[in-house]
Design a binder for these strands. Sequence first.
DNA 1: TTGAAAGCGCTAACAT
DNA 2: ATGTTAGCGCTTTCAA
Lengths: 342, 342
Amino acid sequence: MATIKDVARLAQVSPSTVSRVLANSSRISEETKRRVREALHQLDYHPNAFARGLVTNTTGAIGILIPPSMNEFFVNPFFAEWMSGVSEVAREHGFDTVLSTSARDEEEVVDRMVRGRRVDGILLLETRPGDRVLRLVAERQFPAVLLGRPADPVPISYVNNDNVEAAYRATQHLIRLGHRRIGFLGGASELVVTIDRVNGYRSALVEADIAPDPRMEVSSFFLEQGGYLGMMRLLAMPERPTAVLASDDILAFGGMRAAAELGFRMPEELAIVGFNDIRLAELANPSLTSVRVHMHRLGVRAAELLIEQIETGRTHTKSEIIETELIVRNSCGANTPSQNLV
Amino acid sequence: MATIKDVARLAQVSPSTVSRVLANSSRISEETKRRVREALHQLDYHPNAFARGLVTNTTGAIGILIPPSMNEFFVNPFFAEWMSGVSEVAREHGFDTVLSTSARDEEEVVDRMVRGRRVDGILLLETRPGDRVLRLVAERQFPAVLLGRPADPVPISYVNNDNVEAAYRATQHLIRLGHRRIGFLGGASELVVTIDRVNGYRSALVEADIAPDPRMEVSSFFLEQGGYLGMMRLLAMPERPTAVLASDDILAFGGMRAAAELGFRMPEELAIVGFNDIRLAELANPSLTSVRVHMHRLGVRAAELLIEQIETGRTHTKSEIIETELIVRNSCGANTPSQNLV
DNA sequence: TTGAAAGCGCTAACAT
DNA sequence: ATGTTAGCGCTTTCAA
């Protein structure tokens, strides 16, 4: 494998000249550049990323810390859409994307990536109150952007939805359709995103003089199967809900499968609203009313903020809220005026 | 940031001793190890990946070359399931996963990753006849595994499905249900996976004395929208198909949306069989009959083969076929004996 | 069992 | 405009 020395020898210049040509320095004559480039090409030279990184202390890569609950993430289309936004921006700026999965010890992984200089910055995917990884990253002043918002006052950049507001509006939508017994089908209850959404849900209830009922709030794992089980539990209640707000479309799908198996007609006997508006929401039966959170945009902005931090070396944090919108389809009953609610 | 020298100084040993402790060399006394480890911990030392890599020429990362048609991939659940298999194995073996997206010049990206020593090996996602990237990787003798099979006789390891056989069986299934006019809804026609599946489809037709009709084979882009458009085209034919084999579930979903919009009843007026059996196939309406290809397993095996290549330094190639199975649900009509076909 | 020293391939002062 | 030199942080002979 050709090194910079080989190229220098062939082009009859010094290694530093080659290095300058590589960086397209303006202080090198065109003639020399030509000769060096020819040698570069002839030897099929490719710079060694290690050697370069050792000197420059940059990697040209951004890391994504996949949480231990990773499989849920990977397989959830919402993650894929987010990733595709991240990846798009990374590519435009010439960055690679390094996925790092933490078996358990997330802090160890962060150190490995950050301090081990494997990436120039890091994207964090989920957080919960007391999150130690967040604190660690902030302490280290490592370039980082969180998807979501920090639960505690940690100085970190983030990109988030207005989750409280979004859940509030979605719940209100169901209330306006006449529902009084509304269930909440959420993912892991300690996650900030779940906390925010459940809070929005509750405040809409309270506003309508409906007392939030803890039994109406089930939290499960972020998978289709989780939605299935959660819905079974909700429907098993003596006074079962007539409508359910799911914190994720995949949960909603699982819930719909459960309801369909039990013979509930949707939306007439059970209205459902999901979250995230994945592409398949439109294809469900009935088509799923869902809160569009613009995952792709979240990915794009997160990556942009991160790369900006990396390239400018800025250390102060910056955050951004992406607005959401309720996409009304058939599963909520708004398009079924003939509904027959109690 | 503490270096190995700082640790050495604190522990009152030489840098090489520290290095040996890091590698857990057996020739270091327990007492020294203890002292060094203490210093390591006290300084919160983390090895610099560049410096180490420069010496060892290894990265502890595997690369995935995302094709230019990347967005299709990312957002397709089948890719996510595959990735989750890859990622699982990578984590177990302590490897990171580097995603590299090629704007256009895939060969350049391969060189950057492989020769630039950013990854220890590479996973290739799709291929077509005359694929130059494949040839390049094989020439370089770089550790690599292809998802699919090489179209040309290139010495490369791969993990594939029995696509010809699978499409043959799926088509035969439709023929046995009484269909004679069967359409094929595929992705990019130049991809090997499409070629294999269309061949299996044709041979089942031929076997049943049905002449393959090129107009019955539409190829489109690998997205829901592609399926939608392709199906519109098939249904617009004077003698439209009564059944369609789609080369991907997402295409099938798009096709089903088109058919539903036009008022076709499925499976009675139009039977559909998909490919890949993504999790949502079960949730479609009607639930989608699909060829299960075990994407997760493909990912696991691809990663295992690659890491084996990397760790053993073996250079000879190895390939593996993952069996498929037809999962019969409602969209093909096999569960609707009351169907009324011509 | 440990240390000294060389060198991986590159960049970046500093010199010229 | 180009060359010389030092050094990034680590591993690995070679010596002791």
